[in-house]
């Protein structure tokens, strides 16, 4: 009556590799790093994306700490020293046409520029997902009508639509974000819709259905992870574009109103003295816009790799 001998003498048991055994299950499973770590590693391999993330973190930190960091009041100027150049005493980035410190305005301006760029994109993301998943998978008449309505909006160039909306809604931070948000819906919904249609025709959706999955589960558990990843990448890239668009709206006078220190307004202010040899007033905020927009684009590229399970190798 020796159970050990009995077990080990069973041919089926002998042939089983010890690694296959139930006892080693937990230990083996624990050795694999989590998806988050694998994703971060994939992200880390893209040096440009890491640099972009660092730049954005610095800009966000500067925006958050603006009251502490900025040396002067961004709206009160010293008219006696107006238009002094880079490196003037006490003002490393110089002064603008009303004698305001450009560095301080740049730091405070990051708040508005980032808010206007990121908030509408984040707010529209779930709406676009909902529209895209519904219209793309369920289709039918409602989905069809929805997408045709968006196609009509899609026919307007993004910038034109935003300018028209901002002009109708009136100036101000909230209205600018609303205008940008509405203009973004057709673009983001289109991306969600296209990848939903694309993914719906893949065999794993069929396999899930054959395995007893209901429509809700297919949408949320099977399709959503595959649709949200490309949309997130696109959204990140859009944030960069929205920094430029928001600045453009301010520049045109339909966005945030002066004297609020917004990068677009700063560029507009500087444009009048650009040809008088005072290029720094417009160039500095212009460069800030360029750097942040570029950083968002590069971050999007890195995100694409980080979210792709094929790139998440150990």
């Amino acid at each position: 009556m020796n159970t050990v001998v009995e077990v080990s003498s069973t041919p089926g048991q002998v042939s089983v590799d010890p690694r296959f055994g139930a006892s080693s299950r937990k230990a083996k499973a624990g050795r694999r790093p989590s998806r988050l770590i694998l994703g971060l590693r994939a992200f880390g391999r893209d040096k440009m994306a890491v640099a972009a993330a660092a730049v954005l973190i610095i800009v966000v930190a500067a925006a958050a700490l603006a009251p502490v960091l900025s040396p002067y009041d961004p709206v009160v100027g010293d008219s006696a020293r107006r238009l002094e150049g880079i490196g003037s005493e006490g003002h490393p980035l110089g002064l603008d046409g009303q004698g305001r410190d450009i560095l301080s305005r740049l730091i405070w301006g990051a708040r508005y520029s980032l808010t206007v760029a990121i908030v509408p994109v984040l707010a529209v993301l779930p709406i676009a997902l909902l529209i895209g998943l519904f219209a793309g998978y369920v289709q039918g008449r409602v989905g069809g009508v929805l997408m045709r309505v968006l196609d009509v909006l899609f026919a307007f160039p993004l910038v034109l639509l935003a300018i028209a909306l901002a002009a109708v809604l009136g100036a101000g931070l909230g209205n600018v974000m609303l205008a940008i948000g509405i203009s973004l819906v057709p673009y983001m919904a289109r991306v969600a819709y296209t990848s939903t249609v694309q993914e719906s025709s893949r065999e794993y959706v069929e396999a899930a259905r054959a395995g007893g999955a209901r429509t809700g589960e297919i949408l949320l558990k099977e399709l959503l992870p595959n649709v949200v990843s490309p949309l997130l990448v696109y959204a990140t890239t859009l944030c960069g574009l929205m920094v430029v668009l928001a600045a453009g709206l301010s520049f045109l006078g339909v966005g945030i109103v002066p004297p609020t220190p917004d990068w677009g307004i700063m560029t507009a202010d500087g444009s009048s003295v650009l040809l008088e040899g005072r290029a720094h007033v417009a160039t500095i905020p212009g460069l800030a816009i360029l750097v942040v927009a570029l950083a968002f684009n590069l971050l999007g590229d890195g995100l694409r790799d980080a979210l792709d399970p094929r790139k998440q190798t150990t």
Partner: peptide, 8 residues
């Protein structure tokens, strides 16, 4: 290969 969800 295509009948399994690539992200699960």
């Amino acid at each position: 290969g295509s009948a399994f969800n690539p992200r699960l």
